[in-house]
Design a protein around this nucleic acid. Structure first.
Lengths: 278, 278
DNA sequence: TCGTTTCTGATCGGATCTGATCGAATAGTA
DNA sequence: TACTATTCGATCAGATCCGATCAGAAACGA
């Protein structure tokens, strides 16, 4: 015994985390990112993957999250996570395509928004990233048909988020149908930020789904100016249903890998170009 | 029993620390660090771990802290890590209250839903769990103002989800406001499953927020029968705004820890009771 | 001074938590 | 469809922690 001995190995400060503390931390990670891979959690809480797996099992039993191969998501939510989870392959895959370009486009597009604006935001992986950039704006009013856009702005204190009603399209977590279009009828905002699956100089923005196209048209009709967000993989691509013709597009935000000739032709048709460099 | 009673006669001038003094220091340590390990406490107050353990047990009985394996934390906040990203403590905390009971309630309530039904589901942690139980139902139509309910059912292939429009209330991820209420105006479904913050026999369901209350009323008005989901922590509790009076409640789904007298009184008023056992 | 009460510390058995490993299941790819 | 690489689940082992019991020390009253 050596109570007065002061040559102790000072373990203080880096106290090991309690189990409850660790689980709370996991929940915070979940709410911050929507979805987290098991490996990332293990690293974040400085525990083994086995322990994290156990925690996830407990938290799932309490209904606080959903487990998947490779990680977990918030109940219902799905993620734009590097590679891991794939309950929803289509969406996760879409988010992976040109991820860096999309992030750069989102950031550049956000600079087109000013404090006090009222805007409309469509559904899509790019517009979701775009919405995340808007959390710091003040006195913003955002109308959207995308649950992911709405969630991205849910905690922004000075942004008012209005969701259109409508039928949920699960694959993209967006609202479609006549109810969605009707709720946009009397609306008038400054700018609409929409995406799509393809954009050509001849036919403008297009998407393969008719319901989605119909809503996108209604979104566009509610705005004075239309801003299209499209990474280079979509430029020059035409899909089934036209949503916004070229002459109605006011701005295009894309990245520097987009084919030059299509951009030139778009510029000739009075589309103002904003090229992001990832 | 008087082992915990330590209102000792103050023998002044002694150098040994009194029990009350030691416990006070423990509380100071807790408030300074949020969470402290048992070993650190023992070293800080120059006592054995056994004694500290005893103190923690007493302090926990007084509700002044929560014990865990290896130490203790403050009752309210577990989020104490430097640079913690507690984005949404309120919702996560709410979900943890009576989590097992809520899960059992959700499961029992789901048995009240039949294939082919059209139902309305309100916002809340319990209704979210309830929605997760519905994914296996077929030909179901679900109308909700909760983003979490909608997301829980997003991937259910045979469930049609309709979201009301409205302004997003970020803290609970639900849609409120006149737009939400208007979109429910012409609707008629078989049953409404709603929650709330309190339920008494005299005043029925209540919630502390007026906007939420208004939407809940609109949800209830759209259904032939009203089913209330409330765990025992809400039974006998009255909050500010009444949403559904008792005589309009057709079913109550709760757990077996609910106070007997309130349940009896509710049964007297024609509320059918469903008691889940976690 | 003595006995009683209360508090503190030590020890031991049992319980809990954590980490590692291996077979089984799952997702992605050709 | 078949194959391969992860990932999951179950089991086991080690370490830590908790609770209960017992013994010693200090304080109080007679």
């Amino acid at each position: 015994m050596a109570p007065g001995d002061d040559s102790r190995t000072a373990t203080e400060g880096r106290r090991t985390m309690f189990a409850a503390e660790r689980r709370q931390r996991i929940l915070e990670l979940m709410h911050a990112n929507g979805a987290v891979s098991l490996r990332d959690i293990a690293q974040a809480v400085q525990s083994s993957e086995v322990t994290v797996r156990r925690d996830l099992r407990i938290l799932e039993a309490d209904g606080l999250l959903n487990r998947h191969h490779g990680g977990a998501t918030l109940p219902g939510a799905l993620a734009t996570l590097p590679g891991a989870l794939s309950r929803e392959p289509t969406y996760a895959q879409k988010a992976q395509v040109a991820a860096a370009e999309k992030a750069a486009i989102a950031e550049l597009a956000a600079s087109l928004v000013e404090d006090g604006d009222a805007i409309v935001v469509g559904a899509g992986t790019t517009t979701q990233l775009f919405a995340q950039q808007l959390t710091r704006h003040a006195e913003l009013a955002v109308v959207t048909n995308s649950l992911l856009v709405a969630q991205a702005l849910a905690n922004a204190p000075r942004v008012e988020v209005v969701l259109t009603g409508g039928t949920l399209r699960g694959a993209i977590l967006a609202l479609v149908g006549s109810a969605a279009e009707r709720s946009l009828a009397g609306l008038r905002v400054r700018r609409a930020f929409i995406s799509g699956n393809g954009l050509t100089a001849e036919r403008g923005v297009s998407t393969p789904n008719m319901q989605v196209a119909s809503v996108d048209r209604a979104l566009a009709a509610a705005a004075e100016e239309i801003v299209v967000l499209a990474d280079h993989t979509k430029i020059g691509v035409d899909t089934m249903v036209q949503t916004v013709p070229t002459d109605e597009i006011d701005h295009l935000v894309t990245d520097d890998a987009a084919p030059r000739d299509v951009l030139d032709e778009l510029a000739n048709r009075a589309v103002r170009l904003h090229v992001a460099r990832p």
